[in-house]
Design a protein around this nucleic acid. Structure first.
Lengths: 140, 140
DNA sequence: AAGAACCTTTTAACGATTCTAAACTAACTT
DNA sequence: AAGTTAGTTTAGAATCGTTAAAAGGTTCTT
């Protein structure tokens, strides 16, 4: 049962990459493991790179950036815009929103069912709503 | 009536600066004029700097940045986070939200009364909601 | 008009991100 | 298994938006 985890530690993550059409390279596997086996996470490229180093995974920062973007394009991650100076990536792909504590740079998920948008204007002609992002900015 | 505009073109803007406790310098007056006399606007530092140049106002980019931040601190402007690589400033200080067209980098206001958030979770203990930002991302 | 406080400018620096070109590697072919 | 090829990674340089420091200029108060 947990056999899958111990005897084939990369199986799950490998399947995800294959399913996304991404070649399962050493570094993609390692980063995917860090990202997807720790529950819902919010990371910046710097943070993930730091974690990789800490885990003795040799990966360049450029590859971390590439990988985050490829994963995002493959719908394995979602980019969150809360800070105009830094990009955060979220492993939680379900419908949800965010609390953002500006002093501490902490991001927290708000489950989709805890925010209800009752009314919304139609998108301008010729456009389509891609996503609605709600950021509740916290203070104190 | 429109006399105010033609005979004392800086009167309105001057009063706003004074009210905010900002010295009405040449460049602040000029930038304020560009910002506040064109209806609701969304600008980046680059854009505003470009407009100033086009209007033959000699202002350095650093001053544009300083001014945008000072105006924001003085509640004459509001910073909007829609792009993790660029800061936008909004002259519309009323309660409202935004459409953001990612291909064209176009920002459009959504009046506050056109979006209704019916339900929202309480902020985590020890924090207070500073603002709720809703960005409707458009495509196509 | 003088002094003090404040503002603007230039230039250098910064952090985050992307680019480049070369080295590498996974996957396919034989 | 070796060779080929296309895709990937790398280090380092380059770029972008933004901020900082230092020097000089402006505005306000008197």
């Amino acid at each position: 049962m947990t056999e899958t985890k111990s005897t084939r530690p990369y199986k799950k993550v490998l399947d995800r990459l294959r399913a996304a059409g991404l070649r399962p390279t050493r570094q993609r596997l390692a980063l995917a493991k860090l990202l997807f086996e720790g529950g819902d996470r919010h990371v910046t490229a710097e943070i993930l790179h730091g974690e990789a180093q800490a885990a003795s995974i040799r990966v360049s920062l450029a590859t971390v950036y590439n990988t985050l973007h490829q994963f995002t394009a493959a719908d394995l991650l979602r980019e969150i815009v809360v800070d105009s100076q830094r990009s955060y990536f979220d492993t939680n792909m379900s419908d949800h929103h965010h609390f953002f504590h500006e002093k501490t740079n902490q991001l927290m998920d708000i489950p989709g069912d805890e925010i209800v948008v009752a009314q919304m204007p139609p998108p301008p002609p010729g456009t389509v709503v891609k996503r609605v992002d709600i950021v509740v900015r916290l203070d104190e």
